[in-house]
């Protein structure tokens, strides 16, 4: 039995300990916002936060997660439903095309802003290089991160 805290709620799962966190989230817990893209940590579609750090859930065995605090895209907004500044910026700038990679993009960006509330373009390149957008919405992703950073500077907690 593995105990984890997902989006603020304690969960217990009993699965093959080699199962990647991604498939526990999707198939066992029904949290479908985290996406499967490559299975080898090359595309970033499955990015979640584990104890505040962005990780690729497709390559993270659940056995390593006992006691971990995990945040997925479903848990990024505030409990009252108020969207994270990144989510708001993504909608305001109409970032998504197909949208499939965007939960992973947003989770990578959220980790960046948490540690670096005023990222430069180079900081954004470094933080986001692991996330492929096959539709290539990179121009708007960059702009949305900058815009969310401005919102954060106004006192919006990330």
């Amino acid at each position: 039995m593995i105990h984890l805290k997902i989006n603020g709620t304690m969960r217990e799962v009993s699965v093959d300990p080699a199962t990647p966190l991604l498939w526990v989230l999707r198939d066992t817990l029904g949290l479908l916002g985290t996406k499967f893209g490559c299975g080898i940590a090359m595309c970033g579609a499955c990015t979640v936060h584990v104890n505040g750090t962005p990780v690729r859930a497709c390559s993270t065995p659940i056995a390593q997660m006992n006691g971990a605090e995990i945040t997925t895209i479903e848990g990024l907004a505030r409990p009252d439903g108020k969207l994270h500044p990144l989510q708001k910026a993504w909608v305001a700038l109409d970032v998504p095309q197909c949208g499939y990679c965007q939960s992973g993009q947003i989770m990578s960006a959220a980790a960046l802003l948490h540690h670096n509330p005023k990222p430069t373009d180079a900081d954004i390149d470094d933080a986001m290089v692991g996330n492929i957008c096959r539709c290539a919405t990179y121009i708007r992703i960059r702009k949305a991160i900058h815009e969310a950073a401005v919102e954060l500077a106004k006192g919006e907690p990330a």
């Binding site: 916002g33 996406k35 479903e74 998504p96």
Partner: peptide
């Protein structure tokens, strides 16, 4: 803006998968 944008950024199920 895309009509599904809010669902996309909050991770709601939309795709075949």
């Amino acid at each position: 803006g895309g009509v599904d944008n809010e669902k996309i950024v909050t991770g709601q199920p939309l795709f075949g998968i």
